[in-house]
């Protein structure tokens, strides 16, 4: 990519930026039109709302508006201090981190493994069938997925039928705080693995077939080929996906959490986003919940910068 960017007329280099932009716009205006939609999307839906984040430092009252609301105590940091000293701080951080960490270490390799396996399958019909079936859960609405999990985990549900068949005792599985995270992560993997493998399959098809031939001639078996040809071939994709994934390490979505949790498992289930939802939308502590959400975003931002930095040092592949 960098190479592409460099290959510009050397004459153009000396011209000022806006001149070049204007000239390029004339030549490629269709591409700019295409791009403008995306830029507009980001400005309207991503950047403009950011201005609202200042209510984290205020005591927001809808009637007074964002600018008219008074600043919070302690130099605007009142809500942050309340969160850091609050009873739920450590628990929220721990749950959010652990759930996304498990999701990362179990959920991230899963689609890669699936893609590698599918790649080895030579029977076309079988391959397509497996792919289609593994995609399907992705298209089921989250509400339905959670509904299924709840039904299956009830005392007279499918999971308990299995446990009872092997002589165990029936119990409401979703009331057990120790099982909440495994259920959450496993169902995530089940739902996303097929869809996640698409990008790796695409990368796999880009690996040069000659390399395999060469490896075979050198006497590499299938396993060795995978280690030394396939994986290095798709490693840039893997790393970029990993960086993106780490950027969302501390952001467990509230949707699935609030659908799945109940009072009995809050200890292991409650995450930052579901807390923000509860205190913000249900208890109308707008400023406080914004402060918590903002804190979460800052952590994510640091994480993605860090992951990118490490990746650049270690593997020379990075987002920017």
């Amino acid at each position: 990519m960098k190479g592409c960017a460099m290959r510009v007329d050397s004459a153009a280099y000396k011209r000022p930026f806006f001149y070049r932009l204007k000239k390029d716009f004339k030549r490629n205006y269709t591409l700019y039109i295409l791009l403008s939609v995306v830029i507009a999307f980001y400005i309207i839906f991503m950047y403009v709302p950011m201005y609202g984040a200042i209510i984290a430092f205020k005591n927001y009252s809808p009637a007074k508006g964002i600018l008219g609301s008074p600043w919070a105590k302690n130099g605007g940091m009142e809500h942050f201090i309340r969160f850091f000293n609050g009873p739920y701080f450590t628990r929220l951080i721990r749950n959010t981190f652990l759930i996304s960490f498990y999701d990362l270490i179990f959920g991230f390799p899963a689609p890669i493994i699936l893609a590698l396996l599918i790649n080895e399958v030579k029977n076309r019909a079988f391959k397509k069938t497996v792919q289609t079936i593994s995609y399907m859960p992705y298209f089921i609405s989250l509400i339905v997925v959670v509904g299924m999990i709840k039904q299956f985990s009830a005392t007279n549900g499918f999971f308990n039928d299995i446990i009872a068949f092997f002589g165990g005792t029936r119990s409401p599985i979703l009331n057990n705080p120790n099982l909440y995270r495994p259920i959450y992560v496993a169902s995530n993997i089940w739902q996303g693995v097929g869809w996640g493998s698409v990008i790796y399959l695409a990368a796999l098809s880009g690996v040069d077939a000659q390399l395999y031939e060469a490896a075979t001639i050198d006497g590499a078996n299938k396993w060795k080929q995978m280690l030394h040809v396939t994986l290095p071939g798709i490693s840039p994709t893997i790393i970029i996906m990993l960086i993106l994934r780490i950027g969302s390490l501390m952001s467990v979505g509230y949707e699935k959490t609030i659908l799945l949790y109940n009072d009995a498992v809050m200890k292991t289930a409650d995450v930052i986003s579901s807390y923000v939802y509860r205190v913000g939308i249900l208890d109308t502590s707008w400023s406080y919940s914004t402060a918590v959400g903002l804190f979460n975003s800052i952590i994510n931002f640091i994480l993605v910068l860090g992951a990118n930095w490490i990746s650049r040092k270690v593997s020379e592949t990075s987002l920017w």
Partner: peptide, 23 residues
């Protein structure tokens, strides 16, 4: 320049689709 722009467009679309998945 054209190729760079094309890459930029495709990258933003890719990013967009990724962020669209979560958002």
């Amino acid at each position: 320049m054209k190729r760079f722009l094309a890459t930029a467009v495709s990258m933003t679309i890719l990013l967009l689709s990724i962020s669209a998945c979560s958002n």
